[in-house]
């Protein structure tokens, strides 16, 4: 009986310890999503300049940037976990959590556009690449318009 109690207490403490470890603070989620979105901006910005003709198209650079972007654009969404709507210094609007389906739809649409952009980059298809940069930009904006504080 005594050993059973000990096991139960140990298990309980371990459980508490692991939940404490597995559950980052809300601010950490905000940091996660903002970091991912900042990196997306870092790698996408120069492609915008290419689309506008301010920078020449370079296949190697385009492949490098889009390879990163395909991975980066998968990242920020887990940072929008429940209960993180008011944490830290966030511009995320509460509508994100009220309209989860639409938010996810727009996030998925953006990732699909980025995947296409990566294909045009590796195909070295400059004309379509430039057009597709606009489509990606539009998919960023679709979400910002609805879910980001003005």
């Amino acid at each position: 009986m005594k050993s059973l109690t000990r096991i139960a207490i140990t298990a309980g403490l371990l459980g508490l310890a692991t939940t404490a470890l597995a559950q980052p603070k809300p601010e950490a989620y905000v940091k996660e999503r903002q970091s991912a979105l900042s990196l997306m901006g870092w790698y996408f910005g120069p492609l915008g300049a290419v689309a506008k003709g301010e920078k020449p198209f370079n296949k190697d650079e385009a492949v490098r940037a889009t390879t990163f972007l395909v991975q980066l654009t998968k990242m920020p969404w887990e940072g929008f976990a429940a209960g993180t709507d008011k944490a830290g210094n966030t511009k995320a609007r509460p509508e994100i959590w009220a309209k989860q389906d639409d938010f996810k739809k727009k996030a998925d649409a953006m990732q699909a556009e980025v995947a296409k952009l990566a294909q045009y980059a590796s195909a070295g298809d400059e004309a379509n690449f430039k057009k597709q940069v606009g489509a990606v930009g539009g998919s960023c904006k679709a979400c910002h318009d609805d879910y980001r504080a003005k």
Partner: peptide, 8 residues
């Protein structure tokens, strides 16, 4: 409103 490349 449209955004994307129309922003130019």
């Amino acid at each position: 409103k449209v955004g994307g490349n129309a922003i130019q």
